[in-house]
Design a protein around this nucleic acid. Structure first.
Length: 419
RNA sequence: CGGGGUGUGGUGUAACGGCUAACAUUCCUGUUUUGGGAACAGGCGACUCAGGGUUCGAAUCCCUGCACCCCGACCA
């Protein structure tokens, strides 16, 4: 993409109404637009990051048997009354409105009811199970306090998968697979090293749920980490009994602030019971379906990466989710340099390398460098009189101070090599 | 929802109750520049969040509302 076609611009100053680092960086660099507290639009660069995160998650979900679908955002009152979650006294963060014809509707704040309703039509026999449908969807929550930029919003994009199993044993097998898939996701998006499987409060049907907590001072949870075991305990279940049960020693735990970037939860029959979601086994006996839920907020994840992987110059995107793989800067407006940069852009694009081409004219080198650092694309390529004299293109990683000059053919090989 | 704070050009800030609301940046025009946010000159852009009140006079003081930020509560 030519940067001259990109309508967003970087800003020198962060807006005064944002204190959180993630929102400041993402707004300054032109990834998101703040609509109101806790509500952000994704600008072209931001959408590309979101879509890459989505692709990674989709891939991992499909690998463990997930089947993608899309539930509606608007939902009827009746469905929620089955689980007693329609009343504002029970759930206080609803966005509700009325139809012209008179009925009440709500904007979905979670998906269990929607899935239970739909799947009831398709689950009748043991032959229909297990199944693992999921969707990516915009969720609405009327938060009394949206905060921390992208970390806690009123409207956010998430992935929710629900497992429908015949029994606990079958559920447990999948639950573990999902846990591993989640670990892989956090590894791939670049925050695996600071993300811990965290024991948190469960529910009627399981003692614990598992959160994926990413360490950052901007987080709103407190967790206690056992570094050697690679697991953590949420403050909400941090008791001597729980520690003993998990084989953790208090003295070895480190207290940290963290943000819940993912969550997996055994639901048991909490939803299958009110919806009478049941199947007939081989002998014709009916059993309630065992359910589990597995969620990840994509915007929160993107914000967490910006928050935790930035430096004083800007964002440092991991290669896996960067909006572009390379950022090609042309310095100087001479015809020779420009045509060389055009050639490099065409060649890389032809070879399938993603390029954001800073072809803007009349800008100083320093300004282009500063923008590139702020936007945070992993590989910076510079074409200038100097680089041409040196016989190639200057290649510098965002995370490194020094670059090197390589000929175009070599550059193409490097950027198209499988790693 | 409790507590605290803040609302001024697109953005960041300034302005004693008193002159045409100032400065920087962005943006536009021109000239010169081009390896770490260039220089000069000129220009556009704000009924100071909304509504009420006090006053000869309000961005400034008072009231109400709204929005935003922070701490806490909540977080299926």
């Amino acid at each position: 993409m030519r940067q001259s076609h990109l309508f967003t611009k970087t800003r020198k100053e962060a807006p005064a109404d944002e204190m959180s680092k993630n929102a400041e960086l993402l707004i300054k660099a032109g990834f998101i637009h703040k609509e109101m507290a806790g509500v952000y639009s994704f600008l072209p660069l931001g959408l590309r990051v979101l879509q890459k995160i989505e692709a990674i998650i989709r891939d991992e979900m499909n690998k463990i048997g997930g089947i993608e679908m899309r539930t509606s955002a608007i939902q009827t009152k009746e469905v929620w009354e089955k689980t007693d979650r329609w009343s504002d006294d029970v759930v206080d963060n609803w966005f509700k409105t009325t139809l012209k014809s008179g009925g009440e509707i709500g904007l979905s704040f979670t998906n269990e009811e929607a899935y239970s309703t739909i799947l009831k039509q398709y689950i009748h026999s043991y032959k229909d199970l297990p199944i693992y449908p999921y969707d990516f969807k915009t969720i609405f929550r009327n938060e009394t306090r949206a905060k921390s930029g992208m970390l806690r919003g009123r409207e956010f994009y998430w992935k929710a998968l629900y497992s429908f199993s015949k029994d606990i044993a079958e559920h447990d097998v999948f639950y573990e697979k999902a846990k591993q898939a989640y670990k892989a996701i956090f590894q791939k998006v670049g925050i695996g090293h600071i993300t811990y499987v965290t024991f948190a409060s469960g529910g009627t049907f399981s003692q614990f749920s598992h959160e994926f907590q990413t360490i950052t001072a901007a987080g709103e949870d407190t967790i206690y980490i056992d570094e050697s075991k690679g697991i953590a305990v949420n403050k909400e279940v941090y008791t001597d009994e729980v520690l003993a049960e998990l084989g953790l020693v208090k003295e070895h735990l480190i207290e940290q602030r963290a943000v819940e970037t993912g969550n997996i939860f055994s639901l048991g029959t909490k939803f299958s019971e009110p919806f009478d979601l049941a199947y007939a086994d081989e002998t014709g006996v009916r059993h309630l379906v065992i359910m589990g839920s597995y969620g990840i907020g994509l915007g929160r994840l993107m914000g967490t990466v910006a928050e935790t992987l930035s430096d004083d110059k800007g964002i440092v995107w991991p290669e896996s989710i960067a909006p572009f793989r390379t950022h090609l800067l042309v310095l100087g407006d001479s015809a020779a340099v420009k045509s060389e940069a055009d050639r490099v852009y065409a060649e890389l694009t032809e070879k399938g390398v993603e390029v954001l081409f800073d072809d803007r004219v009349g800008m100083s080198a320093g300004e282009k460098f500063a923008d590139a650092d702020l936007i945070g694309i992993p590989y910076r390529l510079v074409v200038s009189e100097r680089s041409i004299e040196a016989g190639g293109i200057e290649l510098k990683k965002r995370i490194e101070e020094k670059g090197m000059v390589v000929p175009l053919s070599e550059l193409v090989d490097m950027l198209t090599a499988r790693n």
